[in-house]
Lab assay of single mutants.
Amino acid sequence: QLRFETNGEEQAKKVLEEAKKHNLEAHVTIENGKWVVHVK
């Protein structure tokens, strides 16, 4: 499982879109005010 700390909602959405293009499972959590994308 990969973990990407992003700078906010915009970047998190871009990472999610990329993951979906590659048929990867991804979800976002907010940790300590940071948007974190988890990709399987």
Rank of each mutant, 00 (worst) to 15 (best):
Q1N: 14
Q1E: 14
Q1K: 10
Q1F: 15
L2T: 11
R3P: 03
R3D: 05
R3A: 06
R3N: 05
R3I: 11
F4G: 02
E5S: 02
E5C: 09
E5P: 06
T6Q: 03
T6G: 04
T6E: 05
T6P: 04
N7M: 12
G8L: 10
G8N: 15
G8T: 15
E9Q: 10
E9D: 05
E9G: 04
E9L: 11
E10N: 08
E10T: 09
Q11C: 12
Q11T: 09
Q11H: 13
A12S: 05
A12R: 00
A12F: 03
A12N: 01
K13V: 09
K13N: 14
K13F: 13
K13Q: 13
K14A: 13
K14D: 06
V15G: 02
V15D: 02
V15A: 07
E17H: 08
E17N: 11
E18F: 15
E18S: 12
E18N: 12
E18P: 00
A19T: 04
A19F: 13
K20H: 12
K20W: 14
K20S: 10
K21M: 10
K21Q: 10
K21P: 01
K21A: 12
H22Y: 13
N23S: 09
N23A: 09
L24V: 06
L24H: 06
E25Y: 10
E25S: 11
A26V: 10
H27G: 03
V28H: 02
V28I: 15
V28Y: 06
V28F: 06
T29H: 07
T29V: 13
T29C: 10
E31P: 00
E31T: 05
E31K: 04
E31S: 05
N32L: 05
N32G: 12
N32Q: 08
G33W: 00
G33R: 00
G33Q: 04
K34L: 12
K34Q: 10
W35R: 00
W35H: 05
W35A: 01
W35I: 06
V36W: 04
V36S: 01
V37R: 00
V37L: 01
V37Q: 00
H38P: 02
H38Y: 15
H38L: 13
H38G: 01
V39H: 01
K40V: 14
K40E: 13
K40R: 10
K40Y: 15
